[in-house]
C-alpha cells in the first residue's frame, strides 16, 4: 500500500462568516520514493491539505493513512510519535531564533528523547549533508534565506522521517537559491530514500524535481498524474492555466496556433528549422521555453503556422514524434 493514502478527505472551517470548505473529497496516494507535487493557486487549499497529512489540521471527514495506520485512530501519544516520521519544512523556515543551527537540528531529537551527545553527532552529519558544516554555531539571524532553509531541512530530517512535507518551501527564495534547495531535496530523495511532498504555486518547482503532480483548484483535485503526462497534455483549466504561458496568445486569421511539447527528444535535432525546410512553411514562434536536460530537450514552444499547410505540419510532427496540440 501507499506510504501516504488520503481517502475522501474534506475539511471545513467554521468561521464567523459561515463555513468555508477548504478541501472537498480529496483522494490521493503517495508512493514510497515519490517526489509528489501539489500545485494550485493561493487559497486553493493546498496548505490545509499538507497539514492534514500530519494532522496539524484534523480533517472534518475522510481518512489519512500513513504507513497503513489510520491517523485518526491513533492516540495523542501515538500521533506525536507518528509525526516524528514526518518531517516538515515551511515557507518562513520557522527556525528557533534563540538557538544555533546545530541546536535547531538537535531540537526534534531532544523531543524524541535522544541523548545529547548522539543528537549532536547526528546534527553534524546532517549539517554536512546540507553543506553548512562551517555554520554550526551561527544563529538564524546570521544566516541567509537559503541557509536557513538548509538548516530547516536538516532539522526536518534529524529523526529519519519517511516523508518530508514541504509547504511552499522555496517561495521566499530567489530563483538561484530555489534551484539549489530543490536539487538538495532531490538528492535527499535519491540518497536517503525520503519521500517528498511539495506544495507550491510555481510550475517550475514541479517541473524541476517532481515525478507526480496533483493540481488543486477550489478545494478539489482536478487533475493528477505523472508530471510528464500532465505537462504534455493538461486536461483541466487550472493545469492549463499553470502550465501555459501567461496571457492567451491570440490567433491571427488564417494561422493556427500549435503547442509543441518536448520531452525525451534529442536536443541536437533542429526541429523548427527542419519543419520550415521540409514543409516549406513560414513558422512563427510565439513562445518558447525549452532546456537541455542531459542531451534531451525538455519544455514547450508555441508556434503559428498558416492554416493551409496544417496537414503538412501535422504529418511532420507525427513523423518526428513531437507531442503537439492544436490550440484554438
Amino acid at each position: 500500500m501507499s506510504l501516504v493514502s488520503i481517502k475522501n478527505l474534506s475539511k471545513t472551517f467554521h468561521t464567523a462568516n459561515g463555513d468555508v470548505n477548504a478541501l472537498r473529497n480529496i483522494d490521493l496516494n503517495i508512493e514510497e520514493g515519490d517526489i509528489f507535487g501539489i500545485i494550485g493557486l493561493s487559497g486553493a487549499g493546498k496548505s490545509t491539505l499538507v497539514r492534514c497529512i500530519n494532522f496539524l489540521e484534523i480533517p472534518t471527514d475522510g481518512t489519512v493513512y500513513f504507513e497503513d495506520k489510520d491517523l485518526k485512530e491513533l492516540s495523542h501519544k501515538e500521533l506525536l510519535k507518528a509525526r516524528q516520521s514526518m518531517g516538515m519544512i515551511f515557507q518562513g523556515f520557522n527556525l528557533l531564533e534563540q538557538r544555533t543551527a546545530i541546536k535547531n537540528i538537535c531540537f526534534p531529537l531532544e523531543i524524541a528523547g535522544v541523548a545529547r551527545a548522539d543528537a549532536e553527532k547526528r546534527a553534524r552529519e546532517l549539517l554536512e549533508i546540507v553543506g553548512l558544516s562551517d555554520r554550526e554555531r551561527s544563529y538564524p539571524s546570521q544566516l541567509s534565506g537559503g541557509q536557513k532553509q538548509r538548516v530547516a531541512i536538516a532539522r526536518a530530517l534529524a529523526t529519519n522521517p519517511k516523508v518530508l512535507l514541504c509547504d511552499e518551501a522555496t517561495s521566499a527564495l530567489d530563483p538561484n537559491t530555489t534551484r539549489s534547495i530543490l536539487s538538495l531535496l532531490k538528492e535527499i530523495n535519491e540518497k536517503m530514500g525520503v519521500t517528498v511532498i511539495i506544495i507550491t504555486h510555481e510550475m517550475r518547482v514541479i517541473e524541476q524535481i517532481c515525478n507526480k503532480v496533483a493540481v488543486i483548484d477550489k478545494s478539489r483535485i482536478v487533475e493528477e498524474g505523472s508530471v510528464r503526462e500532465i505537462f504534455a497534455n493538461p486536461q483541466s483549466d487550472m493545469a492549463r492555466q499553470l502550465i501555459l504561458p501567461k496571457g492567451a496568445i491570440k490567433s491571427i486569421d488564417d494561422f493556427v496556433t500549435i503547442r509543441l511539447v518536448f520531452d525525451g527528444l534529442s536536443s541536437y535535432q533542429p526541429v523548427i528549422a527542419n519543419l520550415v525546410m521540409e514543409c516549406n512553411v513560414p513558422v512563427n514562434i510565439m513562445y518558447a521555453d525549452t532546456k537541455d536536460v542531459n542531451g534531451t530537450a525538455a519544455g514547450e514552444m508555441i508556434i503559428q503556422v498558416p492554416e493551409g499547410s496544417l496537414d503538412k505540419v501535422r504529418g511532420y510532427l507525427q513523423r518526428t514524434g513531437i507531442k503537439y496540440k492544436e490550440e484554438m
Binding site: 515551511f90 531564533e97 538557538r99
Partner: peptide
Amino acid sequence: DPGVIEAAQSMGASNMNIIFKVLIPEAKP
C-alpha cells in the same frame, strides 16, 4: 512566532515540550 510553534508540533512536540523548549526560550529576551 506561531510558525515556530507549528514547526515544533510537526516534529511531535507535546504541549509541555512546546512551553519549556519553545515558548519560554524564544520569549526570553
